[in-house]
Design a protein around this nucleic acid. Structure first.
Lengths: 113, 113
DNA sequence: TTGACACTTAAGTTTTAACTTAATAATCAT
DNA sequence: ATGATTATTAAGTTAAAACTTAAGTGTCAA
């Protein structure tokens, strides 16, 4: 099918590092360096992840001295919410039966009374 | 960071074809062939996408004659819901101001009164 | 104006993903 | 048994993603 485009929100949140960055930004604006700290990854790598997030418009940046402060832009996440919401009724309807089915399938045998 | 593993739900829903397959399965069980039809893609390609969805436990399969019927398994989508819900409060708090900011940024100038 | 700081951009490598065609497997109908 | 149907698995190609190190760009402080 069509190639996954860079600006795709679903693609942007597919990577755990990028998801973690977004979580960090819940606390407020943060500099690139601060965002990079929890990761065992080079600064350029983080910079590139930030670029992906920026292109997906999940973050915005502003300069502050020599730092760049990143800010969370939650709007595009609505697309994700909208998509998963399509499945909302299935969470209610089938989930209990489903739970048992999956347990069975994976050999976590259900205690019989 | 750690490589994106195959079983990751976020990775599974990152591809538009896979998202579309899941939507198709909302209607009920469907054979691989039926699922493949809307796509301009070879059958093996779809089969591989189905494998990714299966590994993420977003679908289950059963044989029915020579068909394989795929069924939606919504459970793992809870992880996605859980994650985006972390940002719920930002949708309420900042979204109006944000909307204007983004419009400005992209030159969709706001009508001034 | 020089040097340290906080980054980004460039360039190149390695890994993973996404396809293709060809071959194989299971089921069914004759 | 043979052949058609429905699909998967194998094998190989191409493209995209995720990193690395090295070089470059502003900003600040002395």
């Amino acid at each position: 099918m069509r190639p996954v485009q860079e600006s795709d929100v679903f693609h942007a949140i597919a990577h755990p590092a990028r998801r973690h960055i977004l979580l960090q930004l819940k606390a407020g604006e943060l500099a690139a360096g601060a965002l990079a700290e929890p990761f065992d990854m080079s600064l350029p790598a983080i910079s590139q992840h930030l670029r992906v997030l920026e292109e997906a418009e999940l973050v915005s940046v502003r300069r502050e001295g020599r730092s760049r402060l990143y800010r969370l832009e939650p709007k595009p996440l609505r697309e994700v919410v909208g998509w998963v919401d399509e499945f909302a009724k299935f969470f209610d309807e089938r989930l209990d039966a489903l739970g048992e089915y999956l347990d069975e399938k994976h050999g976590k045998r259900t205690r019989r009374r």
